[in-house]
């Protein structure tokens, strides 16, 4: 796999740092312009993780924390592909996920929401994409939860995803939402994304063709990472 510099990130498509509807961004956003940096080897390379680091249950959130039974909630499969902007599969990409339980409660010391923890649900998982860029998780559909932003703000049901491609410049963290959730269009974090088309790309459709009858429904979620030019040798013209 060749590895040149990455296509420039479209920062009008991503959320801006300062987005006051999401209050915490007000004091955590740089005020000075980012300095543009042509990719060097430091950005074009990145860690790649081997399948051997994975445990057999790492992508099964129904089982990887279970103590004395299955967690309570809607059983789902989340699957899709990691592609680059040219539509090429990204094999060997590490995807880490985290989420609340069916009642919207996170297993975290600082979480104080009154909905109870599920003794059989931890809420973390990870997997590495196959040669065709495909991946798959099994989990419980997370519940919405309230958060102290506006006086009555609720996050839509969502799963957080952290993705490593092949270069550190591709590093991305995002959130997956579920088709048909009316909270998506009320959420100040979703609304940090200026373009409706970009938001729609984060909404996973229900996928009946991959639903396992009498077991678990499926949602399909494709992830796109930055594309890259084809050569690493800087004394040659770059291009594809």
């Amino acid at each position: 796999m060749s590895g040149g510099s990455f296509y420039q990130r479209d920062r009008r498509w991503h959320p801006p740092a300062y987005s006051p509807g999401y209050k915490t961004s007000i004091t955590r956003s740089p005020q000075k312009a980012l300095i543009a940096l042509d990719n060097t080897l430091s950005e074009m390379t990145g860690p790649v993780f081997g399948h051997d680091m994975l445990g057999p249950l790492d992508n099964d959130l129904i089982r990887n924390f279970a103590k004395d039974g299955d967690p309570i909630g809607q059983r789902i499969i989340v699957h899709g592909r990691v592609l680059d902007e040219d539509g090429r599969p990204v094999p060997g990409a590490l995807i880490e996920v985290w989420q609340a339980n069916a009642g919207g409660r996170y297993r975290h010391k600082k979480e104080t929401y009154l909905a109870p923890l599920d003794p059989n649900f931890g809420g973390c998982g990870r997997t590495i994409t196959a040669e065709d860029g495909s991946y798959r998780f099994r989990t419980i559909k997370p519940g919405p939860y309230p958060w102290p932003n506006g006086p009555n703000d609720w996050r839509p049901a969502h799963i957080h995803l952290s993705i490593f491609g092949h270069g550190f410049a591709q590093r991305l963290i995002t959130q997956m939402y579920f088709e048909g959730d009316p909270l998506i269009w009320l959420c100040p974090i979703v609304a940090t994304i200026p373009d409706k088309a970009a938001i729609e790309r984060l909404i996973a459709p229900l996928d009946m063709a991959n639903t396992v009858p009498m077991d678990a429904r499926a949602y399909k979620f494709d992830i796109v990472l930055r594309g890259r030019r084809s050569t690493l040798f800087e004394n040659r013209m770059e291009g594809n």
Partner: peptide, 15 residues
């Protein structure tokens, strides 16, 4: 294709 838009890691990224 367009790159998937970023979202905040949130307060529970450590999970």
């Amino acid at each position: 294709l367009k790159e998937s838009a970023s979202q905040t890691a949130g307060p529970y990224v450590h999970i």
